[in-house]
Design a protein around this nucleic acid. Structure first.
Lengths: 202, 202
DNA sequence: TTTTATACTGTATAAATATATAGTATTTTT
DNA sequence: AAAAATACTATATATTTATACAGTATAAAA
């Protein structure tokens, strides 16, 4: 999905606020009043930009004809939290799920299938701490440098991944930890997913 | 609650249908069209009856200004995201809100009033990066060592806070940044809230 | 470099809309 | 039996509202 500009976000937010508060979408003039614009065309053009980006739809020829597209279901997505130790086997089996949390699926760039609770300090230099919840998008695809959940023959680990031909490099972000080199000719390794975000509880 | 007549129920149903289908309430004319009335006043008087029975409210002087009363509370926890630059003034004013995200309120230890989008690298050594969203619980209370949103005379900043008598220490987590010392006898500073969590989007 | 997108002000107007007024008729409540 | 509510048609109009057109200016993309 295309990113919204700061102003477009404000307009979108203004629409949401209006619907929540009054029960119906705002007029151009109301958007202008709330955001301090002096011309109705300021609102109009932002609305058209949002429409172009498929965020809202505008019913032609009717007042307040704005509706927000792909509204998520009320409860939002419930996403399981899994301990890193357990991530190896049947990842999403219920016995591995520590809890479920509700998150806005639109929060992260890609769909989040589960949160991985981080153990150890191997990624600490890049701001990933013990007990942080790393949002994982399940996929076997990755680009070099992605943060990946990798299942090796005897472990599951969260590292930066680099692949060159049959050689896999799993690189930690901690100088006290050594990178892991895997030769796919001799050993097996599978990418379970990539990290697309992080949640930390203080 | 007073009972609705058959016609009033039809009109109410028509309103609900319109909101579900289009995202906004109907006009008088649209109600007439759907229910086969030939005069806009037919719809009007039914609406006034529904208003009198406290089923709906009608916003005077605005089109489609119908809203159905006692609706369920809106989506779970919708929490605004605010840029650090804007955090100073009218913090939660709509023009400062970049977007809203839905989060599980139980996710963090304390109630989250807003997310602060981090600017700069002053907390990078403790895993708080630029554009991270720090979950802020609005309060003026704090303990020494808390991560606090502090409004000084000319800035708003996110730092570790330590207070001893009239002296305030705002400590960054980056050796390239100097701690800020504030003598409350000479300068003013206010704690706007404390950080209770963090969300990062990759 | 040119084009496209963003981000507005300012003015104007056709169309959409709420809303008042004047009726008629039936049903329900007091 | 009278008053009030219901349930409409019909017409009119002030206001709201969407929307087009003409500009200016800046930033980003091609």
């Amino acid at each position: 999905m295309k990113d919204l500009t700061a102003q477009q976000s404000k307009v979108l937010n203004c629409i949401e606020e209006s619907i929540n508060k009054t029960g119906f979408p705002p007029t151009r003039a109301e958007i202008c009043q709330k955001l301090g614009f002096k011309s109705p065309n300021a609102a109009e053009s932002h609305l058209r930009a949002l429409e172009k980006k498929d965020i809202i739809s505008i019913a032609g020829g009717s007042s307040r004809g704005i509706s927000i597209k792909n509204k998520k279901s009320s409860s939002g997505g419930s996403v399981p939290v899994i301990g890193l130790v357990a991530a190896g086997s049947a990842t999403l089996a219920s016995e591995n799920i520590e809890r479920e949390i509700n998150v806005d699926p639109s929060l992260f760039s890609k769909n989040v299938d589960y949160f991985l609770k981080v153990k150890g300090l191997s990624m600490i230099e890049d701001g990933i701490y013990e007990d942080d919840l790393v949002a994982i998008h399940k996929t076997t695809d990755f680009k070099n440098g992605d943060l990946a959940v990798v299942r090796t023959e005897d472990d599951v680990t969260l590292k930066y991944i680099f692949k060159e031909n049959h050689k896999l490099l799993l690189k930690p972000a901690n100088k006290d930890f050594d990178p892991i080199h895997i030769d796919l000719k001799n050993e097996s390794a599978e990418v379970e997913g990539i990290g697309v975000g992080l949640i930390r509880k203080n």
